[in-house]
C-alpha cells in the first residue's frame, strides 16, 4: 500500500464547459478517516466518481493506492454511491451473493449477520424496501468488505438524526484496520469528531486539505473553519 491513498494532479472536470473541478491537485494520506466537505454542487460526488473509476472524461493524473485507475484500484476500493445501485428485482440475499461473487475481500457471513442484526429480511426485494432500508443494506454490504479504501458518498445524506448514529457506528466499527475511509458530507457537525483529516472543496478548488491536529492548532472547530473558508464559495463558479 502506498503512503498516499490518493494522489491527484491538475485534475479538471467539466460538464458541457461548466467547470466543476478546476485544475486541482492534492494528496490524501493512507490509513486516515477523511472528511470530504463542501456545499452541495461543489464537486464532491464528481470527485468520488472519478476516484471510483466511474467517470473517465477528465484531464489530469489520478492515482488510487499508488495505482492508476483500473481493475486493481477497483478491487481495493469499496465505493458507496449516494443513490441505490441494485436492480429492483434483487432480494437482500441476491445482493449479498452478488458482492460475494465479485469482491474477494467480501465477508459473506458478516453481511448475513449484519442483515439479521439490522432487521433486513434476506428474502425481501429491493423494490419493497424503503429508501432508508436500501441505504442501510448498501452500507452494510460495503462495510462487509475488507478494502484498503472506503469511499462513502453522503452516507448520512437522507437519514434522520437518530439513524445517523447507527450509520456512523456501522462505519466506525467495521472498516478494515489501517484502511482509508473517505466520507463526503455537508453535515460537518455530526462527523467532525470522527475525522483524522479533512479536505474542503468549494468553487471547484481545494480550499483546505489538512489534518485535524493542524485545525485544532488554530483553536477552531472543523465547523468553524468550514464556515470561514466556504463562506463565499457556496456556488460552483
Amino acid at each position: 500500500m502506498d503512503e498516499f491513498a490518493f494522489k491527484v494532479r491538475k485534475l479538471v472536470k467539466d460538464y458541457d464547459r461548466h467547470v466543476v473541478l478546476d485544475n486541482i491537485s492534492f494528496d490524501i494520506p493512507a490509513g486516515k478517516i477523511v472528511g470530504l466537505l463542501g456545499p452541495n454542487g461543489c464537486g464532491k460526488t464528481t470527485l468520488m466518481k472519478i476516484l471510483a473509476g466511474l467517470i473517465h472524461d477528465y484531464q489530469g493524473v489520478v492515482r488510487v493506492g499508488g495505482k492508476d485507475i483500473g481493475v486493481e484500484s477497483k478491487a481495493s476500493l469499496a465505493y458507496l454511491p449516494d443513490t441505490g445501485f441494485f436492480p429492483a428485482r434483487f432480494r437482500t440475499i441476491d445482493c449479498i451473493k452478488y458482492f460475494a461473487d465479485f469482491f474477494r475481500d467480501f465477508d459473506r457471513m458478516k453481511a448475513v449477520q449484519f442483515a439479521e442484526e439490522f432487521g433486513l429480511d434476506l428474502n425481501q426485494r429491493i423494490k419493497t424496501m424503503s429508501k432508508g432500508m436500501q441505504e442501510k443494506l448498501q452500507l452494510l454490504l460495503v462495510m462487509s468488505r475488507k478494502a484498503d479504501i472506503y469511499l462513502l458518498d453522503e452516507p448520512l445524506g437522507g437519514v434522520d438524526p437518530a439513524a445517523r448514529d447507527v450509520i456512523l457506528d456501522i462505519i466506525m466499527n467495521n472498516y478494515k484496520e489501517h484502511a482509508t475511509v473517505v466520507i463526503s458530507t455537508h453535515l460537518v457537525n455530526d462527523l467532525e469528531h470522527s475525522f483524522d483529516h479533512v479536505m474542503m472543496l468549494g468553487k471547484g478548488t481545494v480550499l483546505v486539505n489538512t489534518s485535524i491536529e493542524n485545525i485544532r492548532l488554530t483553536g477552531k472547530s472543523v465547523e468553524e473553519v468550514f464556515k470561514e473558508v466556504i463562506g463565499d464559495a457556496w456556488e460552483v463558479d
Binding site: G53, L54, G70, V71, K74, A75, F85, F86
Partner: peptide, 13 residues
C-alpha cells in the same frame, strides 16, 4: 443507469 454505479465499479474490465 443507477445500476452502473455498481456494475462499472466492479473489479473487472
Amino acid at each position: 443507469g443507477k445500476e452502473g454505479e455498481l456494475t462499472m465499479a466492479l473489479p473487472v474490465r
